[in-house]
Design a protein around this nucleic acid. Structure first.
Length: 982
DNA sequence: CTTGGCCAC
């Protein structure tokens, strides 16, 4: 017998992939404790190899030879490993073992077939190794657990554990105030679970925080709750029916309240980071305050930094406050105000010398082997590149710094570099906007430089314009920036202002609700029946004028009626998670047969631009982008880009990542667009605005369906694998890192760098996997090719829809533009004179398409005819250095205005028209003018009637529907009118 | 000639 087995063992090759695959089928199946393909599975085989080598050495030294390996095969080899196993693992392993025996019996392994598969010896060897492996990993995790528990007990908040639970039981509202590092966000939810609370929701202002907190809490509880800790953000959730604790974004909770006013699915609500005073958060607090009055069993916990606590407590009728000390390392503060001669005078570039001196000072004072990176806070992108340029000169010279910019308009690959580590003796110098104040946390920062400046958005209701202006920061921000130096060790904070400046700073930043247009907010409030917005009790009410402006705007837009009640279109717009103008486009698009392109445009205008700015200086990128450009306007360029990308996505072999890189596109934005697009489509459908698609399992015979199923299974496996993978080790930066980005633009960036997965040798593009799981590529392609092959008539109609959606956001070219340079073309909006086109717009490089055609030349200047003029419909008007228009579409002035404007006045013979009391139109001949005007009126009437019918259909059912024939007649009429030139 | 940062069934 024994010799028999030896012979078989010799013919059995442990190292061959086939052998391993056979053993995988025995030990690591779908429902086994460890599954083939998982991280643990890989670790096991690595362990197995070590284990075999170890045994061989033992055998050679004479110990193993004596060993009787005939029977049970478990634990007979004394490797000095423990012989006891935790009950949890024992159960799993014995189940697996029994199972193996059973299958061995069934397939009669001892029979003649065994030469091809593993024999009982191999099975038992493998099982022995598995037992040791499990024991080994169990010991490891016990060690980790003990450490984890120690760390939890060391957190400042731990002292307050019982007190917190007690207060939550006693009081409907509790304020927990604690600074960075006290552990409130991770621990408080766990205390509540341990105390028996259930259905806990914890809101976060940012999505990343939701994901990382859910992971962290789940890890700290050793997945003890399994799926009971989860997160939910837009487009992504790990929520299951058994979820006890859910991390979600503030915006999402607001949407949930909109669905279910009573919020009955939750027992406890934790609103974290309330001190940040985001629009959503302030509003959420207001809604919850009124909700608490109706549902006394609901518990609310506000968590905040230790600033302005009284405000929150008072707002909830003196709710108890629990203050927890933070845990940061000591930070030395040095005030180094900028000397007058280095103070940039107005409209002058920032002087980088004060920043350079600090780098040099660090070089002098701190030996390079004492690690610690530098984080510089500046107000904006321009300032960052100025300082970056200067620092890079120093870095190249001393070879002791790697200079990295950080702001949201960089490519994600560029942004990720700040997490990489610098080689020994070299420090990172990260030059950042306030993105590093809250959104991005970088470990290992020891030095902070605070310029004391920030750029903030405000809204000018008179000009109906957004303004991005530089301000001094608040003391709270100043402290937050300082704190970034003390996360991993003692630090230094250089403040480039005087202590007296600091004392003069505002205590807190201005809450967002005081700075922005409140259109969407008011619309939400109306749809939630919260009564008169002017009498709503906000924690810090916005100016009444600001609310009034929003109400007026919503009335102009037709979302509210004269009594300030929601109209049918307003009800719909409140359900759409987009700005009012984008929402209007969607509704209008669904009426006509232009849903697909409109969905894409709406999605594209709701995400950051996919065009990377760093690529603008790279001639290869600009050339590659050229075919995507449309001279009809930026939304059309975005539409082309999306369609072309979808095309690439559908091709075999894909390669969309490379395709994007070549064009300087951030692919992530396109993934976001495709998700948004689908969400919009589903929303429109659920509101009865789209024809019910006969969603028969789209095409394909049985073989194709099988293929798709197999493909999906594979994709799911890839996704699971990716989720199980430990996040890859950090990369080491090269000294040249900063320079090359600076000089050569974008092609170097991201190239060959890839995602984290490259390190695991997997090269899985997880976004692509998710994309394929979520979307039907061929369906998308169909939609893309429809909008790519748009006829000029359809294009004209699409333009009109965008224009009506964007109305009254229109700009008129200045009459002297033909005498100006490309970059100096001037426009006027109704409320703001002298605006210019943003350089990223297609019209900035190609403004001649906006000029009135020179025509037949022989007509004098008195023969002006508005039918040839063009206007710009625009998405945003933002003032930075100058007021800029972005995302513009050109539209024929006369036709568009007559179809979308609110009011038209005319002289007696209708040759002169004044639109909205602003724009004057001229028509040459009275007869013609009358005809044009009456056609326009007829079309408008019909359009309005059909729109209302469509909206009625969405509430009253399809019998109210709009007939296809009537619709076609209208779009025919609109197109003819648009393309009208005498 | 160039835009702080979040977020939404």
């Amino acid at each position: 017998m024994a010799s028999d087995r030896r012979r078989d063992s010799r013919s059995w090759d442990w190292d061959s992939p086939q052998s391993r695959a056979q053993l995988d089928e025995v030990f690591f199946r779908r429902h086994d404790y460890i599954q083939a393909g998982s991280t643990e599975h890989r670790e096991f085989w690595a362990f197995f190899d070590r284990f075999q080598r170890f045994k061989t050495r033992k055998e050679m030294s004479g110990l193993g030879a004596k060993e009787d390996r005939s029977k049970s095969g478990s634990g007979k080899v004394d490797l000095g490993l423990p012989k006891e196993y935790d009950a949890r693992y024992r159960i799993n392993v014995s189940v697996c073992t029994l199972d193996v025996e059973e299958r061995l019996g069934k397939s009669e392994y001892r029979g003649s077939q065994r030469s091809s598969g593993p024999g009982s010896q191999e099975i038992s060897d493998c099982r022995l190794a598995l037992l040791h492996f499990l024991d080994f990993s169990q010991r490891q995790s016990f060690g980790k657990l003990a450490k984890l528990r120690r760390e939890q007990k060391n957190l400042p908040i731990f002292q307050y554990r019982d007190r917190i639970v007690e207060l939550v039981r006693q009081s409907p509202v509790l304020v927990v105030a604690g600074d960075t590092g006290c552990g409130k966000s991770t621990q408080v939810p766990q205390y509540l679970i341990a105390a028996g609370f259930n259905h806990i929701a914890c809101t976060q202002p940012r999505r990343i925080a939701c994901i990382s907190l859910a992971k962290r809490v789940s890890f700290e509880s050793l997945n003890q709750y399994g799926s009971k800790v989860g997160y939910q953000i837009r487009f992504e959730t790990t929520k299951t029916p058994s979820t006890k604790l859910l991390f979600l974004t503030e915006g999402l909770l607001l949407r949930q309240i909109q669905q279910d006013r009573s919020l009955s699915q939750y027992q406890v609500l934790i609103v974290d980071e309330v001190h940040e005073r985001h629009l959503h958060c302030d509003f959420l607090l207001g809604v919850l305050r009124s909700l608490l009055a109706e549902t006394p069993e609901l518990r609310l916990i506000l968590m905040s930094a230790t600033i302005n606590i009284k405000l929150f407590s008072d707002y909830f009728s003196g709710a108890p406050v629990l203050q927890v000390p933070g845990r940061l390392f000591p930070i030395q503060v040095l005030y180094q105000p900028i000397p007058p001669d280095e103070q940039p005078s107005r409209s002058e570039k920032l002087d980088p010398r004060p920043y350079l001196r600090i780098l040099q000072g660090i070089d002098q004072r701190y030996p390079p082997e004492e690690r610690g990176d530098l984080l510089i806070f500046l107000s904006g992108v321009q300032e960052i590149s100025t300082v970056q340029e200067a620092c890079q000169v120093l870095a190249t010279h001393t070879r002791r710094w790697i200079v990295l910019p950080l702001h949201s308009t960089l490519s994600l690959a560029q942004q990720d570099k700040v997490f990489d580590i610098s080689p020994p003796g070299v420090r990172k110098c990260i030059i950042s906007t306030n993105i590093a104040e809250t959104s991005v946390t970088i470990d290992g920062v020891r030095f902070v430089v605070d310029s004391g400046k920030v750029k903030e958005m405000s809204f000018d209701p008179k000009a109906k314009m957004q303004r991005l202006q530089e301000f001094w920061i608040s003391r709270a921000s100043s402290e937050q920036r300082k704190g970034r130096a003390g996360r991993t060790g003692p630090g230094v904070c250089y403040r480039l202002y005087a202590e007296s400046d600091y004392d003069a700073f505002a205590p807190y930043p201005v809450p967002e609700i005081h700075r922005v247009a409140l259109d969407s907010l008011i619309l939400q409030m109306k749809s939630m029946s919260l009564g008169d917005p002017l009498s709503f009790v906000f924690i810090d009410p916005p100016p009444a004028a600001s609310i009034q402006t929003a109400v007026t705007y919503l009335k102009e837009q037709g979302a509210l009626d004269s009594r300030s009640d929601l109209t049918s279109i307003g009800t719909l717009l409140a359900q759409l998670p987009v700005d009012v103008v984008i929402g209007k486009m969607l509704v209008l698009g669904s009426l006509f047969n232009l849903v697909d392109p409109v969905l894409t445009v709406a999605a594209a205008l709701s995400v950051q631009s996919p065009f990377l700015r760093s690529a603008q200086h790279n001639p290869d990128c600009t050339t590659a982008r050229q075919p995507l450009h449309s001279n009809h306007g930026d939304p059309f360029t975005l539409l082309n880009t999306f369609n072309a990308w979808v095309e690439v996505k559908g091709e075999r072999g894909g390669g969309s990542r490379k395709w994007c890189r070549r064009r300087g596109l951030e692919e992530q934005r396109l993934y976001e667009m495709v998700n948004l697009r689908r969400q919009f489509k589903e929303l429109l459908r659920s509101h009865g605005l789209l024809e019910i698609q006969s969603s028969a399992p789209s095409g394909g015979d049985r073989v194709q369906r099988r293929q798709r199923l197999t493909e999906r299974k594979k994709l799911h496996q890839m996704k699971r694998d990716h989720e199980q993978q430990e996040s890859g080790r950090r990369k080491v930066l090269r000294l040249e890192e900063g320079q090359e980005e600076f000089s050569s633009g974008s092609d170097a960036e991201g190239a060959g760098r890839g995602k984290k997965d490259d390190q695991a040798g997997q090269n899985v593009d997880i976004q692509e996997v998710k994309f394929k799981l979520r979307h039907n590529v061929s369906e998308l392609q169909e939609a893309a090719s429809v909008s790519q092959d748009m006829s000029s008539r359809q294009q004209a109609l699409l333009k009109l829809l965008l224009c009506r959606g964007l109305y009254p956001q229109l700009a008129l070219p200045d009459e002297h533009n033909s005498t100006r340079k490309d970059s100096e073309q001037v426009f006027h909006t109704r409320n703001k004179q002298g605006v210019v086109i943003h350089p990223t717009s297609v019209f900035a490089t190609d403004p001649e398409v906006l000029q009135v055609p020179e025509g037949d030349g022989d007509m004098g200047p008195e023969r002006r005819d508005s039918s040839r003029h063009q206007l710009l419909a625009f998405v945003t008007l933002l003032e930075t250095n100058k007021p800029y228009l972005s995302n513009c579409v050109r539209v024929p002035a006369l036709q568009a205005l007559l179809l979308v404007a609110n009011t038209v006045d005319s002289n007696a013979d209708c040759t002169r028209l004044v639109v909205d009391g602003w724009l004057e139109l001229e028509l040459r001949e009275a007869g013609e003018a009358l005809k044009v005007l009456s056609t326009a009126l007829t079309l408008r009437g019909e359009w309005e009637r059909l729109l209302l019918a469509q909206l009625a259909q969405s509430t009253m059912g399809p019998e109210q529907g709009v007939s296809r024939k009537v619709l076609e007649k209208l779009s025919e009429g609109l197109v003819r009118f648009l393309l009208y030139t005498e």
